[in-house]
Design a binder for these strands. Sequence first.
RNA 1: GGAGCUGUAGCUCAAUUGGUUAGAGCACCGCCCUGUCACGGCGGGGGUUGCGGGUUCGAGCCCCGUCAGCUCCGCCA
Length: 590
Amino acid sequence: MYRTHHCAELRTTDIGKTVTLAGWVDSRRDHGGVIFIDLRDREGVTQIVFNPELNAELAAAAHALRSEYVIQVEGMVVARLSGTENKNLQTGGIEIQSSGLKVLNSSEVPPFPLDEDSVNEDLRLTYRYLDLRRPRMIHNLRIRHQALQAIRTYLDGERFFEIETPILFKSTPEGAREFLVPSRLNPKKFYALTQSPQQYKQLLMVGGIERYYQVAKCFRDEDLRADRQPEFTQIDLEMSFIDREDIYRLIEGLVAAVWKKTLNHEVSLPFPRVSFQEAMNTYGIDKPDRRFGLELVDLSDCFAQSQFKVFRSVLDAGGVVKAINAKGLADITQGQIEELTELAKSQGAKGLAWIKVEAGQWKSPIVKFFSEAEKAALTEKLNMEEGDLILFGADLWLSACEVLGQIRLKAADLLEQAGKMKRQEGVFDFFWVVDFPLLSFDKENQRYVATHHPFTSPVAEDVELLQTNPEKVRGQHYDLVLNGVELGGGSIRIHQGAIQEKLFTELLKIPADIAESRFGYMVRALKFGAPPHGGIALGFDRLVAILTGSSSIRDVMAFPKNNKGIDLMSQAPGEVEPRQLRDLYIQTKE
RNA sequence: GGAGCUGUAGCUCAAUUGGUUAGAGCACCGCCCUGUCACGGCGGGGGUUGCGGGUUCGAGCCCCGUCAGCUCCGCCA
C-alpha cells in the first residue's frame, strides 16, 4: 500500500497520527534549513516539512526534489505553528513532519507551468497527460463523472436498461458525413462509424426493450468547432408507449438530478416551451440565448407604404422588415459595422441597413428615404434613444429572422466587450423548443428534406397537410436549449411501416430501390408490431462544458482533437503501411 | 471551400511603429538563506523573432508565399 490518506484528507483532528502520503511535488520552498514541499494528488495538497535538526539526511534528500517528482512520504501529522496556518488550503491547519521519503519517479522539467491557466492550447494538447494534472482539468473530469453517475442512477430508477449498440454500422448518407471503415473480410465494402445509434435504438423498441439508454460515442466527419469534436458523447435514450409529455417530464427530472448532484443547484421545473416559430420570430435562431434582450421587432407595418425601395420591394414580395435595437452601441466603429455587414451577407442578406442615434441625430445611409411618420413609428416601436444602434433585416420571414439572429448574437458580443452588457452567469435558462416543421425545402436539390431526421412522426392534427402543404406539417420533434446551446433533441418516431415507407418515397422522393437498400430493414421492422416510441439524445460534452463553465468541450474531454481533427499528442491520424492498405483493397491517390 | 486573429527564450508577454548587441516576469541551473505557502537574496545559462522569398543602407516590425494554432461562415439529417 503506497498511502494511508490522500492529500486533501488530513485535518487538525488527525494530529498525532503517523501517515503515508504519495503524490507529485507541486512546489518546493527551500529555506536552506527547513524545506517545505507541497505534495499534490488528485484530491488536493498537503504541506510536508523537512527539518534538518530532526533528520539532516532526509532534509538533504528533500533538497534534491523537483517539480512533478513522484514521491512517497511518511511522517506524523502535526499542528502548524501558530500564525502559519494556511486558510486557502483544506489541509492548511496541519502539516506532515516527514520521517521518511522515497522518490518513486523523477520528472523532466514540465514544458509549461501546471498552475497557470494562460497556456497555449496546442501545447496543452501535445502534453495532455500533464495538462490533466492541473486541478482545473481534474475538476472538469470529476464533474463529468458525477454527471454520468447522476444520469445512470436516475435512469436506472426509471427502469431503463443500459444497452450498447454497435459502433460499426452501415453507411446512411442522408445525414452527417461519416467515417468509413473498410472491411477486410468483405472486399470493397465499408462500415460507417455510427453518427448516432438512432436506428439501433428504434430497433430495440421493436425488440420489446421498452426503455433503453446508452452513453453513446458518436462519430461525425464534419468540420470542427469549439463545441464540435469528430467523436463525442451523447446520452441517448428511447422509450416505448410514450408521448412527448413523457419525454419532457423524464428529461426535466434527469437534468434536475444532474444539476443537483454536480452543482447542488435546484433547477426550476417544468421547463417552458417555445415554438420554433416564436423562437425564430423573436430571436432569429432555434436555440436562443434568452439571458439578454435585443429581441427582433417586426416593422413591416411601418414600411408598408414606404418610399424606400429596398424595404418596399421585400414587403411587396411577401417578406418582412425586422430590426433590433443594440442599446448603447452607437459608438460602433466603421470596421465593426463592416464586420456585421459581412456576417449578414454570409447569412444570405444583400446588405445591412443601420441607424446610429448620436448627438440627437440619426446617422444612417437610409433615413433620407424615411417619412416623418415612419421615423416616428420606428422611434416608438424600437424605443430609440440617444446612443442606440438599430440594425435591420429585410427578406422573406425565415431569412430575415436568421440574418438578424446572427447579428443579434454578434451585437451582444460587441456590447459585452464594451462592458455595456453581461450575459448573466449562474443562470440556467432551460426550455424546450417545439413545433418544428417536419420538412424543409432544399432549394439546391429541389426536394423536401427532413428537418430533424426522417423517422420523426408528424403532429397528428397536421397529417392531412402532408399531401397538400408539406411545409406546414409540424413534427413531433423537440430540442432542449440552455443559454443559447442546443443541449439535445429528439422526437416521437413513426412506428408504422407503411407511413415510414410513404415518407421516404413520396415526400423525401428517395427512389424505391435506394430506400429499400438503405432503410428497408427499418421499414420491415416497423411492420412487425413496432410499439409507439420516441426518444432523445443529449450532447453530454456540451452539458458538462456548461456545468464546468468551460468555453470549449475540449476542456471536458480527456483526450480531444484539435480543430483539424488531429490528436496533437499521438499525431493521429497517421500514415499506414502499404501492406495494411493491400489487405483492405485500398489504393491511395496522389 | 471561405473569412478573421495569432505566431518573439521552456511559459506569459514587451521591443518608442523600419534603426545600435531583441528585453522583462515566471520557469531552469549554481550559491546563500530554519516557518514558507506567488518564500526571499545574489549570480548564470537560454533566441534560426514559425519557415521561405522580396523591398530597403538597414526588417521582429513593411510586402508576397507557406506552415501551424484558434475563432467564425459554409457544413453538422
